[in-house]
Design a protein around this nucleic acid. Sequence first.
DNA 1: ACGGTCTAGTTATACGTAAAACCTGACGTA
DNA 2: TACGTCAGGTTTTACGTATAACTAGACCGT
Lengths: 320, 320
Amino acid sequence: MSQAAVSLVLGDKWRGRVSETTAERVREAARRLDYRPNLAARNLRLGRTRTVLLVVPALTTEFFAGVYTGAARVAADHGFGVVLYPSPEGIGPARDPFASARAALDGVLASSMAADALTAIRGDQLPLVMLDSDPHGSLGAATVNLDIADGTRQVADHLLALGHRHFLHVAADIPSWTFDVRARELATRLRAVPGTTLRTAGTPMTIEGALAAAETALDTPGPRPTAVVCDDDKLAAGVYKALRRRGLRVPDDVSVTGVDDIALATALDPELTTIRLDAERFGEHGMHALLAVLDGRTPDQGDIPVELVVRGSTAAPSPF
Amino acid sequence: MSQAAVSLVLGDKWRGRVSETTAERVREAARRLDYRPNLAARNLRLGRTRTVLLVVPALTTEFFAGVYTGAARVAADHGFGVVLYPSPEGIGPARDPFASARAALDGVLASSMAADALTAIRGDQLPLVMLDSDPHGSLGAATVNLDIADGTRQVADHLLALGHRHFLHVAADIPSWTFDVRARELATRLRAVPGTTLRTAGTPMTIEGALAAAETALDTPGPRPTAVVCDDDKLAAGVYKALRRRGLRVPDDVSVTGVDDIALATALDPELTTIRLDAERFGEHGMHALLAVLDGRTPDQGDIPVELVVRGSTAAPSPF
DNA sequence: ACGGTCTAGTTATACGTAAAACCTGACGTA
DNA sequence: TACGTCAGGTTTTACGTATAACTAGACCGT
């Protein structure tokens, strides 16, 4: 029972090389000694770590927590580990937590919303898969996309069908493909209907930010919006507060929609009509794509469908 | 310029062993070649990985995301990495993602709310620090605690001072020291005032769960609670919905309090009176303690203070 | 002049694994 | 009998690092 035999058996490559008898002896001994192969040694020998990096803009988001969960599950199923690039506050040349650890990664799965962090990471040429980036990718990386364009169309159509003509888009102030697509898709969809107006208010992705942005937008002269389309459920919560302060009721006076369908959406009163994004599935698809790339295969194409969930925050506009 | 010299210089242990001239030559070469020391080899040689495991019940919580952020920041400052134990759904003997990776950890930082996961992990004797566990720890591990007992007292006193006498405790259905302490502290504090009643409703930590639990509790005969103390902001959101369904207004008819002070607390209408827990600080303290243990030092003692944030969800009970 | 000390290096080794290369005895076949 | 084949092992090597052990001069005091 040499070390080599042990390695073969435990590595599950012993068929035809080791007898069933010895294999069992090895397994028994391993069990008895609670033996665990040393990962560092294995990584050194193989030159791979079976660890990938997940780059997200901030973890303090239910959405990205879901992405992590999905990605980590798939990774674990394939014997991979997932390590997180910490929230962007801590990023900078001076204190890049992956300054050295980068050398210990097999690949990177990155959200397009963390482009700044990406440039910091993208010194070396690690296999990269983008979550929600330009399909005609400037980075030359594979991408996995939520079909957010479709979701935006669904929202627009839903509101138009209810009779809305005057819109406010509370938009995330983050340079990212996703948000560009939403703005563009919303604008084109509305332009197709004569007599519609569209106002846009940019804001950081916080409740307070959306509150302030919405208040300013509501105070702007011109036809008052009867429908507010938000880039995210959290922003919608801010909009609710702004409307409340102006004495406007949801949905009687103003309809509101969000994106994500996180717990907050049903905590609001009335419950929020929103585009449900399946964050875990997103993470799973992303990880599958990355594993495919690492494996030399071509990752599956095709956008992940999204779904409009109609709740109490949207209704026909009041006739005045 | 031997390999040893390089190792010494890059490892910053060259004083008195290598001349400044050679040291600079090494640094220059490393820069030019974009050389990064191989982590696997270093880990193998040193028998340490500078990686610790953070065990949390679920990442889909703003609170634990904050804990991670704080812990990861401190870890990074000390050249350590943090890896997460995935959400508990995936846990089980059959598919423990750390089955082998465990051997590659230097220590564990674990929330008491993930006790089940802990037993799965706690086969080997890794240095362990508990977040919020029994100070007379049955595990013999160091602990870092939020002073949740004090927070509970503050809430109780606040509501008692407002004149409330009939209470409902919407309690998390998770066996954990934290929640035990809250229940106990609330009960003793209220018992000290004659004429008070306390009802308790257990629930999983979801909005829907709290909604159902609160509805049931409200339908129970007996004096109707005028104050609802929730173990968590998310539960409070469920209580808001239950009260709304019963036609009760917050805070006019019923006062509500939470714990955590996550974004949801200010998204609610009225904004939620809650116990603010500094999640990041919690994570930072925990990581400091763990690093101390790894270093052979004794971790700092002392609970982390919490703060009652009074907002619009609490008021004097209506005189009827 | 010569042993001793100090400086600035180099050489050698071990860490635990995976896998290639090598060994050995049993068996089948001509 | 001689020889090839094969199953079932074992020995050996390389991975890249940290560090202990060693070495070669330079310098110094006596």
